[in-house]
């Protein structure tokens, strides 16, 4: 079934090399996008719980905008519309970026900022789930609101939301496939190219599917490890994979 992968393509490479190159771009996009999403998501999520009205409103606006516009539309906005809105010089320079980067950076921004909005809501939920006594104790000790969030609130909220962050990790790399619409040759795009060049549609897409599933397994395992690693000693070993019944430990994905 996977014979096709080991046949030479017109450019002299084996098709499997096409697939691996696609995998590399998928991973770059997912991992890079994740760090952007995590950094912005935590900041915006904290902003959502701010007592400063302007800050809370700005954070809310961010979430509503980036979470509610379909990813595909956002991808087009970053790729086609943004360069037109910028001053001509800058816009032209963006349009002239050499091939993979010209699609990669808009895709990175798109997935990073979209996922950030989703993470922000998780972070907010995590913060709101903490007992009020934590905030009160921090305040009573003279910690500034910033220090209280930095050292007391956010570290606990993040631990609480590891299970739901797991689905965000899976979400972002699945969404990387949307980048093919703006011409990034990531995993799905490469599978499609192989299929078009060889008419071995089944083999090409089966290989891509298996790679996606393996990635999911790796991501899940990684998050499980993080969950354990940051488990608070003496706290009840509650929650765990409960919120992800399909991926329960021991289950075959």
């Amino acid at each position: 079934m996977f014979d096709v992968l080991f046949q030479p393509a017109i450019d002299g490479q084996l098709y499997i090399q096409w697939l691996l190159s696609g995998l590399m771009w998928t991973l770059l996009l997912a991992v890079g996008g994740w760090w952007i999403a995590f950094a912005i998501g935590v900041l915006v999520g904290v902003g959502r719980t701010s007592r400063n009205r302007a800050v809370a409103l700005a954070a809310r606006l961010y979430v509503e905008v980036f979470r509610n516009i379909p990813v595909l539309v956002q991808m087009f906005l970053w790729y086609f519309v943004l360069p037109e809105l910028l001053p001509t010089g800058l816009g032209d320079r963006i349009k002239q970026m050499p091939p993979p980067w010209g699609a990669f950076f808009p895709a990175l921004a798109c997935l990073g900022l979209y996922t950030a909005a989703r993470i922000a809501e998780q972070v907010r939920a995590g913060i709101e789930a903490l007992p009020a006594g934590q905030d009160e104790a921090a305040a009573a000790l003279g910690l500034s609101p910033w220090a209280a969030r930095r050292h007391i609130i956010v570290p606990q909220a993040l631990r609480l939301i590891v299970p739901s962050l797991t689905s965000e990790v899976m979400g972002i790399y699945k969404n990387t496939s949307v980048a093919l619409t703006i011409g990034l040759l990531e995993l799905t795009a490469q599978a499609r190219q192989i299929s078009e060049a060889t008419f071995q549609t089944f083999g090409a897409f089966a290989a891509a599917t298996i790679i996606y599933l393996l990635l999911a397994l790796v991501a899940y395992r990684l998050m499980l490890w993080i969950d354990r690693r940051f488990q608070i000693p003496g706290s009840a070993p509650a929650r765990k994979a409960r919120r992800l019944p399909i991926l329960r430990r021991g289950g075959a994905l």
Binding site: P131, A137, L141, G142
Partner: peptide, 16 residues
């Protein structure tokens, strides 16, 4: 707040 310490019914230690 730096001059006034407080002890709560539910301790409110930082569990992490």
């Amino acid at each position: 707040r730096r001059e006034v310490g407080m002890v709560f019914q539910s301790f409110n230690l930082f569990p992490h």
